[in-house]
Design a protein around this nucleic acid. Sequence first.
DNA 1: TTAAAAATCGAAAACGTTTTCGAAATGACC
DNA 2: GGTCATTTCGAAAACGTTTTCGATTTTTAA
Lengths: 341, 341
Amino acid sequence: MNDTKLIDIASALGISVTTVSKALKGYTDISKSTRARVIEMAETMNYIPNSVAVNLRTNETKTIGVIIPATVHHFFSSVLNGILEEAEKRGYLVIILQSNEKYELEKKQLALLIQKRVDGVLMSLSNETDDFSHINDAIKKNTPVVLFDKIAKRVDCSKVVINDAKAAFDAVSYLINKGYKRIAHFRGSYVPQNSIDRFLGYKRALEAHGIEYDSKLVYVCDNNTDFEDGYENAQKIMAENPDIDAIFAITDLVAIGIIKYFNEAGIKTPEQVAVFGFSNWFMSTVISPKLTTIDQPGFEMGHTAVSILIDEIADIKEHRPVTHQIIELPTRIIERESTVK
Amino acid sequence: MNDTKLIDIASALGISVTTVSKALKGYTDISKSTRARVIEMAETMNYIPNSVAVNLRTNETKTIGVIIPATVHHFFSSVLNGILEEAEKRGYLVIILQSNEKYELEKKQLALLIQKRVDGVLMSLSNETDDFSHINDAIKKNTPVVLFDKIAKRVDCSKVVINDAKAAFDAVSYLINKGYKRIAHFRGSYVPQNSIDRFLGYKRALEAHGIEYDSKLVYVCDNNTDFEDGYENAQKIMAENPDIDAIFAITDLVAIGIIKYFNEAGIKTPEQVAVFGFSNWFMSTVISPKLTTIDQPGFEMGHTAVSILIDEIADIKEHRPVTHQIIELPTRIIERESTVK
DNA sequence: TTAAAAATCGAAAACGTTTTCGAAATGACC
DNA sequence: GGTCATTTCGAAAACGTTTTCGATTTTTAA
């Protein structure tokens, strides 16, 4: 079952490939009549252009690459849905790779995408990444990159993010305004900017409201895949600092770990200790009590990242100057049961 | 920043592109010394082969397409992880598309992938799909297809599945052996084979154990994205059939909806009514009580589907006869709290 | 030294398009 | 009928590789 090519249509009609190609692409220097004949013949011969040949000739693949650091779960699955939807709408296909939070893998995968001649790439950085030359190289080679969620401020490209510090500030301020006074923070590991920013937001909110920051109330949860981390640290904090009345957790996942422990240990949420999550993952409504959290708009993030990227691709193609944008998507507090007495 | 090409290396060294190409690919008719010079020059000039040109020449893209029916959540995210991991290991990139359970979209996307010259495609059928000519066309055009999870028995290609009927049979038999007698089933919609098979398994298990099938105990949950369905039907069944002592739910999602209602209504699980889910999604350990369920090996499914596909791609390329395989992955019962008194 | 064998290289075709540029045909106009 | 403008078409180059096949050189064997 051999594919039909331009030359097949051409010889069937006794004309040249040039004419066939032009007719199919709507060039104006082909007469109405032959265009009609070509189109009909293409139809009956079931002609499908060979994308690879087109790619080679036009030097674009209508494909974008995506590198995400973690497994396709929770937050990234929302982002991915946004990416897929918008990309399809704009006529692009998307190749997905995951770096598993490894810098070396991320670097290799970016190189692979460039070798594959994708028109642009979307990426969210691995926790390990603190050298950005691979990204700068890509940009220098005219492959636009837009960073989302886990970004690096120092690299000069478009970014779409949320304001983690502000969101955390809002969350903790909310708790303070609700009357909670001794508020702990279960933070993430020390490297990722997200983790740092949310911690900073927590600290600033305390200071802004005249509550002294107490480093003993900060626990580190650096296991991103399970809620055990939250569970165990909850156990620990209740032994070490039983006087707390609220916990601001870096993700819904650790918040859920906390609530699970509290449920089992008979600690009432929010009466004894309130819990505040982050991301508004699906399961935050599954747990009892339902989790108060920050809505992190993953779907929109994917959407706008693709949109910006494709615009930049067009700019580069048309030799227009490309201006990088930093888009900060709004977050909002979703108040549920875990913080309202 | 222009990419260096074979001809750049060739002219830098005063030799032909042929020689450069062969040296780089390890042809034996190039002397050790010139090979070394070529490799070094390629290194210093930072040569990266143009994949598009290679694709055109070799007529393969080292890329596979994946079409999934639903949003990347829950079960499909596990499958996707399996696919990505195995594909990368075997040197293939993967393009992902989602059909949103629409036949027309599925058809269009498959055509798109073929036009893009992917080497093969993995797909899980939409709920609407009952015409399989698009798939047969793809296979006829020498693009191998392997179906996973939501398959069609009538199309002649490799498939990787679980035995839904058997898994459901096992689940219900487990409940019966535990002493439950009046077991309801919250089924899925009427079209998908999964839904039908699980229902059939339920029915057969009852019959096999001498319990009369009662159609009044079967409720339909056809909303796949939320647990409201389970919640509402739980409410309904307790009003209409308060004498039930167990529910076998088609997915963990509806099972969680049921448990949420039971928790709120003060109905004890499993003491008054036991609940059995399906898939072993992450959140089945989040809910209280933890959910007894069927483990559906999504990650492995992705793994083996890719593996089979790539083998078939190789067979076709080498003009070997390709034999289709039907792989049935084992499922098993994960016993948790929702069924043990 | 010479013939045969082996080693080493390169010209050119091919993959299937797109697009430039010029040529041929047609139409318009006086 | 002759000039010019317009319409319509096609030859050929180009995109960057891979691979066949023949040519040239070097080595081996006698």
